[in-house]
Design a protein around this nucleic acid. Structure first.
Lengths: 329, 329
DNA sequence: TTGAAAGCGCTACCAC
DNA sequence: GTGGTAGCGCTTTCAA
């Protein structure tokens, strides 16, 4: 608890100057002479001075924290975890705290919106009560992916990946490898975000552009092995199907052994694509074409976008893109 | 940006009383009459009052936030994600923020330890620089799992699962199902926590108590499919082996199709156990015996333990257990 | 049972 | 180029 008891007043006394000057020297406002500035910094360091965050924030009326909201249903997908810690790291780098917002926020006991300077909401889903309660505050918000609800009135900034292009590129890569008849393993209706909309559209457009009949198979984002196996077997049983593209993270990787046990040779007569490459099972598997969303960097960028919004450098309703990559496959 | 501009002064003016009284009423110090207290609470709520965290901190040297640290190498295991959000929910319930601590904390730019009232460190690993820097502050710390380093001098509270008993129970369950010769799929040395130590010991003891030769195969916690497949095939090729117990989350689930492709019939002539049941692939698979760590509830309990420590109800060096369960298998 | 006032450490706004 | 002073919103004495 013992905060470093040394304050700017102590430094001022030590140097025989005023605390105002010390403050200016420390901040680097350029008001003080370089000589006193250096002297002050030296003494500050020697005395082990650490700026009291609470006091600074109280003065500046900021909280020094960003809020991160991740919807519940998808939390065991590592993308979100990676994103979260990317965001935490970048926040820490800029002396911001990153506050995890659980579903408790919408509840009764909570005394109001979380104490943050801005909110980052990942994969915002229409009708999510926590999200709505968050949007009710007048904090700046960056959503990672778009909110689909047109009637949404809160000003929002959006950072997203061009999933349409990535999905198209993935389908092209699969075709180049020999996969001419890909089936889309889509998410079920419970998880309908701008991401799923974009990749579905990309798939539909690509199919129609290629004169191919689209086949979309819905599946839970976190299916049991039984569900997944049954679905994959059903798909692969169709003789003309020679490729499978998964919308949800990790399902291509889990489908691989199922297909192999059916005698399919991956990379030869059957091709797998993952639109959200799982780090361990898909991105590092040369037999799977996967999109690397670079979630950690994504987290960095979301935080920096928010920082720019807070500081007024970026618009509260700005749009920004994050670049994903395609593994060699 | 517009913080809820309403302060205790506003409330005081509204009610025609002093801000001291408002403060006392809100805090519930028992100094004011119940009548004014109720009135004050009502008005505060109506005006949308939210206590300013910075001001409170400046005055009381408390932050109203807890810090959560999760080491980097294991973050794509859903256990940690579930734990984190369990902690976030429980924190929110008690009007605390939960701050994610990234590796940025140990870095130079950061102006000191994170602004929290206490730290929860999950699976603390010896020699982790971030952890060390965290322990350097004199905040109360709850570790989830023990720190193995004996020389650690910082007073620590520990909450953990009795992994020894759970592992033993799992081995017994496998034996009851017919698995008499289990191999332990252990983590490699990079991930050596009290958890891995405990389950290794349980395995060794169980084997020696059963007159069975222990076989421990090290593997990365997040192996590629190739690594996992090769390892599992090598293990299963030994004719006397009829069971596999995985130390890392999800590996039993991923091993299942490998074994099936080798002709093993799960639950009949081969048995799988997971010491950290993965929600989607293992806990819901009746062919796999799995330990459910109940990570969400674990997060709740860690937070509540910390709350008790902060409030002085629990010792700073206390020990506490969290109950895990075994799936039917 | 309530109020007045001090002051946490800092930065912004004045003066000099 | 530097210093004095006010005050951010809150809790905590000390008085009434």
């Amino acid at each position: 608890m013992a905060k470093s008891a040394v304050t700017i007043v102590d430094i001022a006394r030590e140097l025989g100057i005023s605390k105002t000057t010390v403050s200016d020297a420390l901040i680097g406002s350029g008001r003080v002479s370089e000589a006193t500035r250096q002297k002050t910094l030296l003494v500050a360091q020697r005395m082990g001075y650490v700026s009291n965050r609470a006091a600074r924030l109280l003065r500046r009326s900021q909280t020094g924290a960003l809020g991160l909201y991740i919807p519940g249903h998808v939390r065991n997908l590592s993308f979100y975890m990676e994103f979260a810690f990317g965001a935490a790291d970048e926040s820490a780098l800029h002396d911001l705290d990153l506050t995890l917002i659980g579903r408790g926020v919408g509840s009764k006991r909570r005394s109001g919106p979380p104490q943050v300077d801005g909110l980052i909401a990942v994969d915002p889903l229409d009708g999510d009560p926590v999200l709505e309660s968050l949007l009710g505050s007048d904090l700046p918000v960056v959503t990672v992916g778009r909110i689909l609800d047109e009637t949404q009135s809160h000003p929002l900034a959006v950072i997203e990946i061009d999933h349409y292009s990535m999905a198209t590129a993935l389908l092209e890569a699969l075709r180049a490898a020999g996969g001419r008849r890909p089936v889309l393993l889509a998410s079920d209706e419970k998880f309908s975000s701008s991401y799923t909309v974009d990749v579905s559209r990309a798939y539909a457009d690509w199919c129609s552009g290629s004169g191919i009949e689209p086949v979309v198979i819905p599946l839970s984002v976190t299916p049991t092995d039984q569900e997944l196996t049954a679905t994959v077997q059903r798909i692969a049983a169709q003789n003309d199907v020679d490729a499978l593209v998964s919308v949800a993270q990790g399902l291509a990787g889990r489908a691989a052994p199922v297909l192999q046990s059916m005698g399919r040779r991956l990379g030869k007569d059957f091709h797998l694509g993952s639109l959200v490459g799982d780090p361990a099972t898909e991105l590092r598997n040369p037999l799977i074409h996967a999109v690397d969303l670079r979630p950690r960097e994504f987290g960095h960028e979301a935080v920096n976008f928010m920082r720019e919004i807070i500081s007024g450098q970026a618009s509260e309703t700005g749009r920004r893109n994050h670049r994903a990559t395609l593994t060699a496959g």
